[in-house]
Design a protein around this nucleic acid. Structure first.
Length: 894
RNA sequence: GGGCGAAUAGCUCAGCUGGGAGAGCAUCGGCCUUACAAGCCGAGGGUCACAGGUUCGAGCCCUGUUUCGCCCACCA
């Protein structure tokens, strides 16, 4: 009777296909209920801590988060299984500008602005939004299987964290490392706030370069200046030329008559000006250009602001007041044209700074802002990295890190928005003194006035996230968490926030805690589409992690991300790969089903048999040796953050060693009559399966937990099982060599079968000709196994013999494989192949012989390499002989 | 302008300190062989971008070239 899939439904406890959706839901709920993710702080155990890069509270899980959190979870689960005191702190970032924008948009749909509500009501509204919508990404992280200690979830505007922010601010202020001043900053006219330098993105943009004639004040001539922003000329307060430029020396006395305004402005001499560029003359607008600002400082030029916060021209722009800056540009150009002062207009591509939040063209402008003097802090960070107290992975980042830190500029930390940590500084209306304190003062300590007004500005979002590694652990309180888990072990993040965030955490951690915030930094790549393009909504190439999870399951998705995470390599996500790994998860599932058939009634204590492999059969010794090797590989890969190797080692082992060979090999024993053989097989099968599940658990938590729970015996969560360790007793080179021989012979016979198109279920008669007595003994010993694997009705193992003319023939490790095939051979095809084989072997032989005949090689190459070449020569020669014999034999059949 | 990275099978990628080129997918052939057709057994397919160099030996090290990508930068 032919068995079908519906037969014996009771034979399997596990469903035929892996049903990930139900399993994932069930186990995550259970893990949460059992608090399996909760950090422990046991005495005497090493600590392993990761703080999550807090996603924006407005965030929606994208594939970058998915990668980032998969890698973190991988390490956290690994260390938890190793028995470390393991903590993964989750949380979200209040994301000042981003969040304020979201709520403002919401208000706009009600035809309201934040000003209609006023500051207090607006902030209430943001909190309300956060309560309602802010948990989105946290729930999505849970879908990813993230094993964060959720009871310790933090938000950068929590009371505790806000306290930490004020403490640090006040401390830095009192140390003179925070100052307030009127400087040029990047201003976003749409967000109405200053931006830090790295919050400005420079896009190459097609624009125009306008050449404008500036007449000399005495009318004796003119100088041409070029600009991409003609409207800023209204704020020009000088023209600059190079000090050594003979063309303009005489202008020092004369000055320039600024067109459209009639103002007279001086000519200044500054080394910044490039003589070769354009006419060598540069218009100077200190209030609206960063370089011009510097020139202005050097020459004590007035700073004339001609725009307001919205990018609209102000009264200083005279007749242009009230015009938007871009409208003004057109008008200025038209007026210059009319006045005959406009020179050529060139197409010009240049980098235009845009707001990283809303892509509005940033306006450099002077404004009163708060800054951090980063030099002393940066020096500490650089020193810590140089001393190896912080390691960067991949190490290609060191150079970039150092060069960035060398050129770092003071950090503008004030933002003119409402959502964020309000700067803890008050101005006394009585005496005008500035008071900076952690807690709001009631009276002015200088004059006793009670009329104190707090700063309106809030802090840059990155200020609070810079404190994240210690603020989340309770600082400034000296908590047990802080003592146990600071410094944290590793930070895993995307390289694009190395400077926004990572460098600043180093600075703040070293300064405030006097200790690094983390020992290792692993910087992963950006996830791109399979063609290497950035994913973006407009391109339409976005891969949504949640869709992937629904389609392929979380484990398959996680496995894919892990497999792609090779150091120093960009990730080109390909949905087909996810599908491939989904099949792998299913393969594991089915291997477990198979095991379960035989293990369901087994006593888990039988695994004790595997402790002493010397008494076990070959295949068992082999798979234990391979298990041992795989454990070593996986651990090394995890310890070195070589995530792709973790995936690869597991994949290879499970599919190509356990499933392809081991399970097939032991089928006979499992269903055979020999009770001792059966017990061995069960014992090792269970042992290997346990090891596999543990090895894979950090990558694929759900399927491994589900299978684990079904194994015989009472079992707790696999999450708290101990991670596999290499076991020297399992290492067995001899078993590996023998199995390699057997597997080679089996594959060789299968090739003969397939090429002759022997039906897979047909039995063949096979002969192995093996002159080597040791190998012959092994082949004889394991003959029944070989016979089963190649579906032979008979298997003869002989020392020597003739190969019949019509036999299929192969050669593996000096063993001749002979399968009589009675006319099934495709003679012409085989002869073709043999000819190809022959020429290939001859070429190889030539190379090897040449090498061995080379004195230099013989002198310089290590003995092992020489010996290997000798073996190779012998092997090639014997293969060549056999190939020629086969050719002759087959030729007769033609 | 400076810096970094990449180029290996049709596609996506491994290849760790130099010692006989690999995987998955795709392609071709054959199979429902009772864990898995989401599978099994096989096959074909590569001038390791190009040119030099070092070496007994180079996908790997060095130099240069080309192409692509990214980061940083005050040439209006």
């Amino acid at each position: 009777m032919q068995a079908t899939h519906s037969d014996n439904p009771k034979k399997y406890d596990l469903p035929k296909g892996y049903e990930f959706a139900e399993v994932e839901r069930r186990w995550y709920t259970r893990w949460l209920a059992d608090k399996t993710f909760s950090a422990r702080m046991d005495e005497g155990k090493p600590a392993f801590a990761i703080v999550i890069p807090p996603p924006n509270v407005t965030g929606v899980l994208h594939i970058g988060h998915a990668l980032n959190n998969t890698l973190q979870d991988l390490l956290v689960r690994y260390h938890r299984m190793r028995g470390d005191n393991t903590l993964w702190v989750p949380g979200t970032d209040h994301a000042g500008i981003a969040t304020q924008n979201v709520v403002e948009r919401q208000l706009a749909s009600e035809k309201l602005s934040r000003h209609d509500l006023g500051r207090e009501k607006f902030i209430e509204r943001v909190w309300a939004w956060k309560e309602e919508k802010g948990g989105t990404i946290i729930n999505q992280l849970k879908r990813m299987g993230a094993s964060c200690d959720w009871d310790r979830e933090r938000f950068t505007m929590d009371d505790g964290l806000s306290q930490a922010v004020r403490e640090v601010f006040v401390r830095l202020y009192k140390e003179g490392l925070i100052y307030k001043g009127d400087y040029i900053v990047n201003w976003c006219p749409r967000c109405h706030t200053a931006l830090a330098d790295d919050e400005v993105e420079h896009d190459p943009t097609d624009g125009k370069l306008y050449h404008i004639r500036y007449p000399y004040a005495d009318g004796s001539g003119q100088v041409v200046v070029a600009t991409t922003r003609p409207e800023t000329m209204l704020g020009d307060t000088a023209v600059a030329v190079h000090p050594d430029d003979e063309r303009y020396q005489h202008l020092a006395e004369i000055g320039i008559s600024l067109p459209l305004t009639g103002r007279t402005i001086p000519v200044v001499f500054d080394h910044h000006v490039q003589r070769e560029f354009g006419t060598g003359a540069l218009k100077v607008t200190p209030a609206h250009d960063r370089d011009d600002y510097e020139i202005g400082l050097r020459h004590d030029l007035p700073r004339l602001k001609v725009m307001d916060d919205r990018g609209v021209m102000n009264e200083a722009a005279g007749p242009y007041a009230g015009l938007d800056r871009f409208a003004c540009r057109k008008r200025v150009v038209a007026d210059l044209e009319a006045a005959g002062l406009l020179g050529k207009i060139e197409d010009y591509q240049h980098a235009v700074g845009k707001c990283y939040r809303c892509a509005t063209v940033v306006e450099p402008t002077t404004s009163k802002q708060w800054f951090v003097s980063v030099r002393p802090l940066a020096d500490k960070a650089v020193a810590a990295v140089q001393q190896g107290r912080i390691n960067l992975y991949p190490n290609t980042w060191y150079r970039t890190f150092y060069s960035w830190m060398e050129n770092i500029r003071d950090w503008c930390i004030s933002r003119q928005i409402w959502w964020g940590h309000r700067i803890p500084a008050w101005t006394c209306e009585g005496c005008g003194q500035l008071i900076v304190e952690v807690d709001a003062p009631d009276v002015c300590p200088f004059c006793g006035s009670t009329r104190l007004f707090q700063e309106n500005d809030v802090l840059d979002t990155w200020f609070s996230s810079a404190l994240w590694p210690f603020s989340t652990l309770g600082w400034p309180e000296q908590t047990r968490e802080l003592a146990t888990f600071y410094p944290t072990s590793v930070l895993i993040t995307s390289f694009d926030i190395l400077f926004f965030w990572v460098a600043r955490m180093m600075m703040m951690g070293l300064h405030c805690m006097d200790e690094v915030p983390f020992r290792d930094v692993y910087l992963h790549a950006l996830v791109r589409d399979k063609h290497g393009k950035k994913m973006s909504k407009s391109t339409g190439n976005v891969i949504d992690p949640l869709v992937m999870i629904e389609q392929y399951g979380t484990d398959a998705f996680r496995f894919t991300l892990t497999a792609f995470a090779a150091q120093g390599r960009e990730i080109r996500m390909d949905e087909e790969r996810i599908d491939g790994y989904r099949r792998f998860i299913n393969k594991l599932w089915n291997a477990a089903r198979f095991a379960q058939m035989h293990l369901a009634s087994a006593d888990p204590a039988i695994t004790a048999l595997a402790a002493d492999p010397k008494r076990l059969g070959l295949a068992h010794r082999w798979i234990l040796s391979r298990t041992n090797a795989t454990i070593g590989e996986v651990r090394a890969a995890l310890d070195g953050y070589n995530f792709n190797e973790v995936a690869q080692a597991n994949y290879r082992f499970v599919w190509h060693e356990v499933c392809d060979w081991y399970l097939e090999w032991i089928k006979a024993d499992l269903s055979g009559e020999d009770a001792a053989a059966r017990d061995q097989a069960k014992a090792v099968l269970l042992t290997v399966l346990e090891q596999v599940l543990k090895l894979m658990h950090p990558v694929t938590p759900f399927v491994t937990e589900e299978i684990w729970s079904q194994l015989p015996g009472a079992r707790g969560s696999i999450m708290v099982e101990s991670f596999p360790e290499t076991n020297p007793a399992w290492e067995d080179e001899e078993a590996e060599n023998t199995m390699n021989l057997l597997m080679g012979v089996i594959s060789g016979v299968r090739t003969i079968r397939t090429e002759a198109e022997v039906h897979p279920s047909a039995r063949i008669e096979a002969t192995l000709i093996c002159p080597d007595p040791d190998k012959r003994r092994l082949l004889t010993e394991f003959g029944p196994g070989i016979q089963a694997m190649v579906r032979a009705s008979s298997l003869a193992i002989v020392e020597s013999g003739q190969v019949p003319d019509d036999a299929g023939h192969g050669l593996v490790q000096e063993v001749e494989l002979v399968v009589p095939l009675k006319g099934l051979i495709d003679v012409a095809g085989e002869l073709d192949k043999l000819a190809k084989e022959r020429s290939k072997l001859e070429k190889e032989l030539e190379r090897v012989v040449g090498k061995l005949g080379n004195e230099q090689f013989m002198r310089n190459a290590p003995a092992a390499v020489v010996a290997k070449e000798r073996d190779k020569e012998a092997e090639i020669r014997s293969r060549l002989t056999k190939t020629i014999e086969s050719t002759e034999r087959l030729s007769k059949l033609r």
